[in-house]
Design a protein around this nucleic acid. Structure first.
Lengths: 233, 233
DNA sequence: AGGCCGACTGGAACGCTGTTCCAGAAGGCT
DNA sequence: AGCCTTCTGGAACAGCGTTCCAGTCGGCCT
């Protein structure tokens, strides 16, 4: 056995960048953003903190890699046979769900230093942009349209992730929404008339549907503006 | 003098919550998000870290208060005499500019735990909502419309803040944009055709105008949906 | 076969953080 | 005068990201 190239295996399973990133994602998912610690990671991998630095330059790169690993499946989808609107909706929902399933992505994306070309979101931007082109948006407005969509997606997903984290702190999501609605209803009627009015809608609202409605709003605005260049005077 | 109520003044200027928050904002503005340290704050206030905790429960509350202090001026504006669209645009621009001038707000908002009724953005939400009502949006859609607008505002402002920080790391903003555009143009033509196409627009694009265009997009979507359910064919 | 050398490991240590603790100073009240 | 609440600020603690380095291991060269 061990023909010419026996398994290197100086341990059951050698440390590798992939194994580290996988463990990091698991850690982030189970104990949250603050739970990712080089010491906790080292313990989970049965090694010391120093060994990790051989494969990864630091925490920033590790977080970027973790985000990439979590977003990547979304980008594997196929757009052929869909209208641009459908493709954008599907892509947006994919990102939304990914961030909802891994709430730490939202907060981390906002905090991380942006290296020019290396943002994990560049691939998402590209995919959105192609569909914007397919929508026959004038060239000069393409950047604006794609940026607006991406910013909206990241904004809502981030907001939603923060709420998910807050709700997770409480035991129940429904109970959490009830608590917020109750808090809203007890606001000063003079200062917060609108918020009090819509407190009821909060209780039974669907984050995903809300999100998609916003996407449709923007898509409507894009296509409306495409027709004649600007909105009503 | 010092009639009946002489100034307490057990030191030149007694420590107070307001003084602490002011110093915190200055620190955040000058040295960035990571520069706000209880020790640095204590040194700037000529005291020790322990004293700060008498006036402020912890770093989270301090950050929330700092955000509030920075956003508050924006909410002092008067909406009378404006159309709802104008009022929303002015409010959105105010928040955008505030976050642009204090980039740490963007990242901090995404990271902070949401206490149900106490988010610093609740007042912004309220102000937007009132204008949404003034736009005669159907009641059932008001929450959606206001949420979409707020999420977009926070999303773009957050993105923009991250870029501002990245650009600030480099010496020059123009040079930074050039670097990004150059990086985009060198991407794989098969994988990133759209991003390469719009790289040129990045160089001379105006973040504020871009942002406002997105607001108008959403407003167009909202009002288009209101009028008759769809735009002209 | 023997020796060497780069790849890789993991534990100790450094400087920093948020937070807690507590001895004590400072003024108002009885 | 004495107390008592409010407020101060320095010391101490646990934990963080990161660096350092003595050591181990496998494969290659002679």
């Amino acid at each position: 056995m061990a023909s010419r190239k026996s398994r290197p295996e100086r341990r059951q399973e050698p440390l590798s960048r992939k194994r580290i990133v996988t463990a990091a994602v698991e850690l982030l998912d189970t104990v949250g953003e603050g739970g990712l610690t080089f010491r906790a990671l080292a313990e989970r991998l049965a090694t010391g903190p120093g060994a990790i630095y051989w494969h990864v330059t630091g925490k920033t790169e590790l977080l970027l890699a973790a985000i990439d690993a979590v977003i990547a499946p979304t980008l594997a989808g196929d757009d052929t046979g869909k209208t641009p609107q459908e493709a954008i909706r599907a892509l947006a929902l994919g990102v939304f769900d990914a961030i909802d399933a891994h709430p730490w992505v939202g907060a981390t994306l906002a905090r991380l230093p942006r290296t020019p070309g290396k943002s994990p979101m560049l691939r998402v931007f590209e995919r959105i942009g192609r569909q914007v082109q397919a929508l026959r948006v004038p060239e000069a407005a393409q950047f604006t349209a794609a940026s607006a969509l991406l910013s909206y997606i990241l904004g809502v997903a981030g907001q939603n992730a923060a709420n998910t984290l807050a709700a997770r702190a409480n035991t129940d999501r429904a109970a959490f929404l009830d608590a917020v609605a109750a808090a809203w209803r007890e606001l000063d009627p003079d200062q917060y008339p609108f918020t009090r009015d819509v407190a009821g809608q909060l209780r039974e609202h669907d984050d995903r549907a809300e999100f998609l409605a916003g996407i449709d709003l923007i898509l409507a605005g894009i296509t409306a503006g495409r027709a004649d260049g600007r909105t009503r005077p």
